[in-house]
Design a protein around this nucleic acid. Sequence first.
DNA 1: AACACATTCAACCGCCATGTA
DNA 2: CTACATGGCGGTTGAATGTGT
Length: 253
Amino acid sequence: MEVKRSSVIKPQLKKNLWKAEEDLILKNYVETHGEGNWATVSDRSGLMRGGKSCRLRWKNYLRPNIKRGEMSEEEEDLIIRMHKLLGNRWSLIAGRLPGRTDNEVKNYWNTHLNKKCVPGKRKATDPDHHQHEENDEINLNKKKKLSPLCHSESSTESAGLIRTESVSLNGRKEEKDQESTVTDPNWMEITDSFNYDIDQYPILPGKNATFVFDDEPLAAYLDSFVLFEPFGCDGGGGAVRTDAINHVVTNNY
DNA sequence: AACACATTCAACCGCCATGTA
DNA sequence: CTACATGGCGGTTGAATGTGT
């Protein structure tokens, strides 16, 4: 039988689902004392939960501006596109969806979108799974057409143009430091760090201004950079609503 | 109604990066 | 430089719920 070496016997921490009263305690505590120091939260608040558990509960469910409920088509579309480029970078993807958490995006992908986007993931026991795959593709294409992220060619005609080479993207850490203030949950804001020649390329945020790309997005860089994807194209040039871009800074790579 | 199976999603786990003493 | 604490991330689990028979 193993003997505990530590003289400090930690109290048994609670697990499983949070109760409403626990939520209330945590919410009150954080609102009073602020976020951070999660390890001390359980001690001082009286919650018998680990710091990580408290942090997760706050971050995913209790903090203000959390958006619950079904994903909109635009959100779904954005997740699919970003996942295509970034892979399982859930926090990065969630960062582009105001009010959504990485956990929610991850779950949504695993339960809804994975089947759609990775045909092999559909259960082979499903007698109609080949038909589903076809329908899924059709539905996806329909969504692409419907999505406001996509623009007809004519929509680019009156838009400002910019080359991908003229911009670069900042990293994860910096990206996390700013909160979106955009009220429309489906779109991001342009921040001060988005630097471009406004005289040469006059663009008004939220006015469907469009960028046209000369080349494929620099996929290799996207691993650690914020997405700057030519939405609505399968390669080559593409267009993106400027208000879908959050942080872009001038050349630094 | 009862059971089996499938699906969803909240929560946990382990690992890693960073900050600090 | 090292050790430790903390926070953040993605992967995984399992209880709750839904659906089919």
